[in-house]
Nucleic acid binder design. Structure first.
Length: 112
DNA sequence: GTCTTGACTAAGC
DNA sequence: GGCTTAGCCAAGA
């Protein structure tokens, strides 16, 4: 599989994150079939054009934190976009137990 | 070809 | 909670 296809898979997976939810880099990599390619997800998002329509702001690291340098413009943008979706970002932190896409809660509550 | 650098993560203090 | 280390893998130098 070539790199460009993996990028597309990542972008497509990120695009599936519902509004008001977040996912981790590792989760995206896993769903995209890349296994341990968490860093690759970050790289794919970095190369993403600003007007792509991909909700890159719904991707955070495993600690529920924004993996962008403090004070950077991109970080501020991500926080603002999340807040606009009613996702609480307190001190750069997000409650994964509450906002994580396909969290344990969601799986348990999903009817068979 | 190698070496370094990350929008990462899990494990171990 | 934080800090280190060791894996990870693609891009750039």
């Amino acid at each position: 599989m070539i790199a460009a296809e993996r990028y597309r898979r990542i972008w497509r997976t990120v695009a599936r994150i519902p509004r008001g939810r977040v996912a981790t880099y590792g989760q995206i990599a896993d769903l995209a079939g890349l296994g341990r390619g968490a860093r690759l997800v970050g790289r794919a998002l970095r190369c993403l054009p600003p007007d792509s329509g991909v909700p890159w702001h719904r991707v955070v690291n495993a600690s529920g934190r924004i993996s962008l340098p403090p004070g950077s413009e991109a970080r501020e943008r991500q926080q603002a976009l999340l807040a606009a979706e009613d996702v609480a970002v307190v001190g750069g932190r997000i409650d994964l137990g509450r906002y994580r896409w396909a969290s344990l809660d969601e799986v348990l509550w999903r009817p068979d």
